[in-house]
């Protein structure tokens, strides 16, 4: 493990983060947007793991678990909202939601 330089791990995490970010930006379906956010959060988790490995401490891993838990909670509320959204707009297209502007 220690043979992999820390920067590689961080770079991978950053790539993952950017993938998620691009997903948020380009996907119109709300479900995919939520999934992309999950990817971004997991990228952060990966970075924590890398950090934890570097310092040889457990708190990085603890953070990952917290992130996972929180993400789950977020998704739960998120999906409920998606349902309501579908009820109003009969679609999952995020761009439909533009009642308010200006």
């Amino acid at each position: 493990m220690a043979t992999i330089p820390i920067h590689y791990g961080l770079l991978l995490a950053a790539l993952l983060f950017v993938v998620g970010l691009v997903g948020v930006l380009v996907r119109r379906n709300i479900l995919f947007i939520l999934m992309s956010i999950e990817i971004m959060l997991n990228a952060a988790g990966l970075a924590f793991v890398v950090g934890g490995a570097r310092w040889g401490r457990a708190d990085g891993q603890v953070m990952v678990i917290i992130i996972l838990t929180v993400a789950a909670a977020e998704v739960a509320v998120g999906l409920a909202l998606v349902l309501r959204f579908h009820g109003w707009f009969k679609s999952l297209d995020a761009d439909r939601a533009s009642e308010m502007r200006g």
Binding site: A94, D95, S98, R101
Partner: peptide, 17 residues
Amino acid sequence: LSRTQTGLVRWYAVGIV
């Protein structure tokens, strides 16, 4: 500036990015 308030959530995300 008001034009930047498009109401589109993905555009807002672009703003953050």
